[in-house]
Amino acid sequence: MTVPIVGQPATATGAAAPGRLAVIFDLDGVIVDSFAVMGEAFAIAYAEVVGDGPAPFEEYRRHLGRYFPDIMRIMGLPLAMEEPFVRESYRLARQVTVFDGVVELLLELRVRGLRLAVATGKSGPRARSLLDGLNLLPFFEHVIGSDEVPRPKPAPDIVQHALGLMDVRADRAVMVGDMPTDLASARGADVAAAAALWASPEVDELLAAGPDLVLRHPSDLLAFCPAVPAR
């Protein structure tokens, strides 16, 4: 038995969210599985610059998603590691794979008229080169690297820059990321933050950050991205 509620308006009162016009993706751990390659490049760079001994990969892993020089600063490692790390990342790029279901997702989103961008911790040239090698570059209107904005994630700059380039309002976009830094960046830009769980190394932290949406498979995003009505 419930309390009778009368006089409820017959029309939606702000519950119906407007459809999304754009999706901003993080790259590593969301679109591409570059985990093994980053680990190998990190180990080689560490051996070259720091020397013998085990590379602190576990700690590095927790900072994935940030701009590489920022990670070096946080971990107290020499910035000189960037050069061999980037070199090895390019060399090993062929070993990077696309997660199952991602190509189908990107295709369907484009068919539905959504505009797509990448906002990554990588540098812009490296991200574009990687996506080009995987034949994914044409899906995205913009691929923005951390070297192309004043402040990398978790600052909102990269998400705001993507919105500006596409001329899309924050409340009409959604950002998909696998790390708490992605969520923070989206939040700072007032963009809904979706947590991609299919490869995240930080699932507990990610969920604790309170994403606006949890995606267990790339296709889960489609329910939130109906076709954009033709104008």
Binding site: T2, P4, I5, Q8, P9, A10, T11, A12, T13, G14, A15, A16
Partner: peptide, 8 residues
């Protein structure tokens, strides 16, 4: 009845 906008 408890969810805003349900009928709409």
């Amino acid at each position: 009845t408890g969810i805003p906008g349900f009928t709409g």
